[in-house]
Design a protein around this nucleic acid. Structure first.
Length: 418
RNA sequence: GGAGGGGUACCCAAGUGGCCAAAGGGGGCAGACUGUAAAUCUGUUGGCUGACGCCUUCGGAGGUUCGAAUCCUCCCCCCUCCA
């Protein structure tokens, strides 16, 4: 336990309602700068009956909200449940600069129309978690776009290059000799200016945003404002169990994934991630998570069953209990009992017969004939349950055939008669 | 402006005239096993071909050579040091 969090333990204890709120907000958080400041803001909020303003920035370029995002969103929801309000800032302006965090690449510049469209898509997904009645949806181009060059220079003068290079990502790239654009320095400053403009009380983000959030704190001070509190949430590893969940890597579970997909992807996370997912993504109470942990340690609980519980919770949250039950049934049927799923897509082909390899390509079960041939040679292809041995075998399509690739891709195909 | 280093397949990275469709790792896919699409192990991973083989690919465009990812010329991009 760090000195800071030890001190926070003390703060939580004796401060009544504000202390209780502080405790609730720190649950699961990776870091909080600083607990003292937050407690003070909470006390004042309660005293004056005025909600705090919490801020979250959103990148407008990738409109799929995934479970990694919901770690922070759920914390914002907790703030709302405690009576506070949320400013959701669509980074339509900062998005054009390009966030250098992590695996950065130059982001495509979006048109006004695309930004609004993406934001609407975002809103639809985000409000599965957030309380729309306590949320403002804002676009930072509305104020950043109006700054004059002189004002931008003034903003930039409030921070030094040395301090910019304190940021791990910048320093590492600089030292490793990888490109580092001057404009990238403006990203944290722009995000900080959002906080100045909105008089933000608390800014949330993943731990990868630590530098940006703290930068906001510093910059607010230089404008003579009360500095924001920074609440960092842990990053959630994706389904590969190693890298942070991200759309571009493809290791993500989206809140709009179908129930079957969401359930299946959840079952594919490594066992080692199970408890973290339960903690950060569900409302399963702490003591129960603790019980599950002990059960698995003692061997009395199969991790698979705990994971099924997690999958059920997640699907229930985003699709409801009926969908969760159906998804679980489908999963058990296909992967545990090795039976067929209920809904198998049907494709019609205007051919009476086809070579196996060509058939797989026609059904989009393989991207090329070479790949199709490999699949067959590796024993990954079944037709009507029987393994196909020869890629060149002829498949009669006079009656409906069931084509299976691997364990989980099924297509029923109907050809032309005769 | 000067000097030097670098751009290789989905990603990282080796390769400096033929044995290179290109080592190794990651990721993906498939198989075995299982407790799940976990873990582990095995195979596979440019396209066309039954196969021999052929075609396209190593920042871009030309050139040398029987033969080029490898050599030469020009161009584009990145980095370092100096100014």
């Amino acid at each position: 336990m760090t000195a800071r969090s030890r001190k926070a333990e003390g703060l939580k204890g004796g401060a009544g309602e504000a202390g209780a709120q502080l405790e609730r907000l720190m649950e699961g958080a990776a870091d909080l700068v600083t607990p003292e400041d937050l407690l003070q803001k909470l006390e004042r909020s309660l005293r004056e009956g005025r909600p705090m303003r919490a801020k979250l920035g959103m990148d407008p370029s990738a409109p799929d909200v995934h479970l990694g995002h919901t770690v922070v969103l759920r914390k914002l929801r907790a703030l709302q449940d405690l009576g506070h309000e949320v400013d959701l800032v669509v980074g339509d302006f900062t998005g054009r600069i390009g966030d250098p965090s992590g695996l950065s690449e130059t982001r495509p510049q979006l048109t006004e129309e695309e930004v609004r469209k993406n934001a609407a898509t975002y809103a639809r997904q985000v409000f599965k978690v957030l309380d729309a009645g306590r949320t403002r949806l804002l676009y930072n181009a509305d104020w950043l776009g109006r700054l004059t060059f002189a004002e931008v220079v003034d903003l930039a003068s409030r921070h030094t290059v040395a301090r910019m290079l304190e940021r791990d990502d910048f320093r590492e790239r600089y030292q490793a000799g990888r490109p580092l654009g001057v404009h990238e320095f403006l990203y944290p400053l722009a995000q900080a200016y959002d906080s100045v403009h909105l008089r933000t009380d608390v800014e949330l983000g993943g731990t990868d945003q630590t530098f940006n959030l703290l930068c906001g704190r510093d910059i607010m001070r230089t404008y003579g404002l009360e500095p924001q509190v920074c609440l960092m949430m842990p990053l959630l590893e994706g389904t590969d169990g190693v890298r942070k969940m991200s759309k571009s890597i493809g290791n993500y579970i989206a809140v709009e994934d179908s129930p079957d997909e969401m359930y299946g992807k959840t079952m594919s996370i490594p066992d080692s991630l199970l408890l973290k997912y339960l903690e950060l993504l569900t409302d399963v109470p702490r003591p129960e998570i603790e019980r599950l942990r002990r059960g698995m340690e003692e061997g009395s609980l199969n991790p698979r069953d705990a994971k099924m519980r997690l999958a059920r919770e997640l699907v229930t949250t985003y699709h409801g209990p009926d969908a969760a039950r159906r998804a679980e049934g489908a999963f058990v049927r296909v992967f545990q009992a090795r039976e067929l799923p209920e809904d198998i897509p049907v494709r019609d082909l205007a051919r009476p017969a086809m070579e196996a390899a060509a058939l797989l390509v026609a059904l989009e079960l393989a991207p090329s004939r070479s790949e199709a041939r490999r699949l067959v040679q590796q024993g990954g292809v079944r037709i009507d349950g029987a393994r196909v041995e020869d890629p060149a075998a002829t498949v009669e399509l006079g009656h409906e055939r069931l084509v299976q690739v691997g364990k989980r891709r099924f297509v029923r195909v109907r050809g032309a008669a005769g």
